[in-house]
Design a protein around this nucleic acid. Structure first.
Lengths: 318, 318
DNA sequence: TTCAGTTCATTCCATTTTGTCATGAATGAT
DNA sequence: ATCATTCATGACAAAATGGAATGAACTGAA
């Protein structure tokens, strides 16, 4: 997202960055609304917390808490600062933890993945890779867009779209197909027995796959002008939660709802599925000799993807 | 975006957050690839930087730099850490600067805005508000989704979509209309004289307004199956840059290209514009007595929006 | 080959920051 | 009135940070 100039820091000037421990003390006190509780959590004395917060307020020139009858309450400024600083501290903590994973390990594989793919397809399978290569470290970061492998410290990436990535090789994992799903109760209550029935029931749309229902109806041979109707969601988790809670029939990428289908929280409505134009690829820099751990991961990933494709094909009608 | 559990910090533990000054020293050294240069920038001695970095490396258990013949080069771990920590430091700096704006001012207006709206429509007009209310402080933050005013410290927000925001009043600012634009050279080279001509030329699509071209052709009475064809962009800045550089004709929200139209870098192709379903609203909590500065801003904003609507209507054919 | 200039590493010491301990004031419950 | 609890603060100790100086290693010019 293009950031606004006014929001961008001119520079990380020491004058504008309080000590990290002071910010942690502030965050903790704000969370507990108590210096005493914060001291307990941080293994400091109550006086230390009190002084830290007062020093922070002096440094900022802003009251972050109001002291009301021996209690503290956040001011508006304090609430705003808490919100913003919390994100920064989490990021800092995550970054530090991640880099610490390099300690004592020569082989660390750094991957850039998409959030939903990483969460729903890759993470459940990683135990298999870890069993096969127990000494390999693995760092997963989220990147939404292609990047220059020369600029970012990654060994590989998962890409969704077309196999076009400058300076890299893209190997096809699998296509994305979206399938119609709903809760069992929804299906039964609306007596959904044919594809035509889906025209008249509430349908849920994925903002990122806006043509999915039209394509699905075309494939099913159903003529309708209502393909674009239905509540629109931007996130997979939201649309699947809505479908689970009987809000409608949804077209969702199959890999995303494997668990829900297995558990019965969602049922697949018909065997027809729409293969999206975009597919998933494993991408790595071209022209480099792959590190053995990267090679191993690539081999494992291709096997998993092949297995996923085979399982899918065997579920199609004979 | 839904964050991945593994990426989320369990807690901001002091063990995992190095001193902020140490991180600044690291960032600065990494940027200069020199402890001596970093010392100059930070007004410390070269020895202080050297010790800071060494201490950070000891604490993390990871080498961030390799020392090569009295020079330093980043390791992979160092490059990864630099990338992540930089974002956190910028966020911390921005948060601190913003909260410091509360100092000495009782009246600070906190607004949540959309990035493109804030940049392209609101920011150029804010000088007018500042002239009228010079004592009012103003903080703009970016929020992409509706939120609970009880949970976030905002006085108001700009919303794009439907006027539905729980616990808040939404006042209509203006509709969003997308208009066809291109560079003058592109228009002349492709001899674009009628709406029909736009079918055969390269067209650029906005991923977030996927039906725009279809709607525009319908409005123009042009029958075509090719409405969805064309390179797709996710960001306004990208699509407008592509259009400026003669890549095609684009349908872009009007407020976004006001400056380019004025400067002649883009020209409007036809008077026909498509009004999008979603509009822009000023939203503020219901049931609260508005603070005088919020009331003043609301009044000013409604006037500016009215003026924008009037200017648009007066540009339509008689 | 020699010398000057430059960079990073390290030690010693001074200064600053942080935290503990103890105490006081204020508040609410009993 | 008493007791328990919280925040604020002073005195002091401990820890962290930074300066100054020095050494080792390297590069380039003479």
């Amino acid at each position: 997202m293009t950031k606004w100039n006014e929001l961008k820091a001119i520079a990380m000037r020491r004058a504008f960055v309080p000590p990290a421990d002071t910010l942690i003390a502030f965050e903790c006190a704000a969370r507990h609304l108590s210096f005493t509780r914060a001291a307990e959590e941080l293994h400091l004395t109550q006086g230390a917390i009190s002084k830290q917060v007062r020093q922070l307020e002096d440094r900022l020139g802003v009251e972050l808490f109001r002291r009301v009858r021996q209690r503290i309450v956040l001011t508006d400024a304090g609430r705003l600062y808490l919100h913003d600083i919390r994100g920064a501290l989490e990021q800092m903590t995550a970054a530090t933890r991640q880099v610490m994973s390099y300690a004592g390990s020569a082989d660390v594989l750094n991957l850039a993945v998409l959030p939903t793919f990483g969460t729903r397809w890759l993470a459940p399978r990683l135990a298999g890779f870890a069993r096969r290569y127990p000494d390999a470290g693995l760092n997963l970061s989220v990147r939404l867009q292609p990047f220059d492998f020369g600029e970012e410290p990654f060994d590989g990436a998962i890409h969704h779209g077309d196999p076009v990535w400058a300076g890299a090789i893209a190997e096809h994992l699998f296509d994305e197909e979206v399938i119609p799903v709903a809760s069992r109760a929804f299906r039964d209550r609306h007596e959904i027995r044919s594809p035509q029935d889906l025209v008249r029931v509430p349908r849920l749309q994925l903002a990122t796959r806006p043509f999915a229902w039209r394509q699905w109806f075309d494939l099913a041979g159903v003529e309708t002008d209502a393909a674009f109707q239905g509540a629109r969601f931007e996130q997979f988790v939201m649309i699947s939660e809505a479908a689970i809670h009987h809000a409608g029939a949804a077209l969702i990428p199959r890999f995303f709802v494997e668990a829900e289908l297995s558990s019965g929280r969602l049922v697949r409505l018909f065997d027809l599925s729409v293969k999206q134009q975009s597919a998933y690829y494993f991408v790595y820099p071209e022209g480099r000799t792959l590190h053995p751990v990267v090679s191993a991961f690539r081999q494992w990933l291709m096997e998993e993807a092949r297995a996923a494709r085979t399982a899918r094909e065997s579920m199609l009608p004979g």
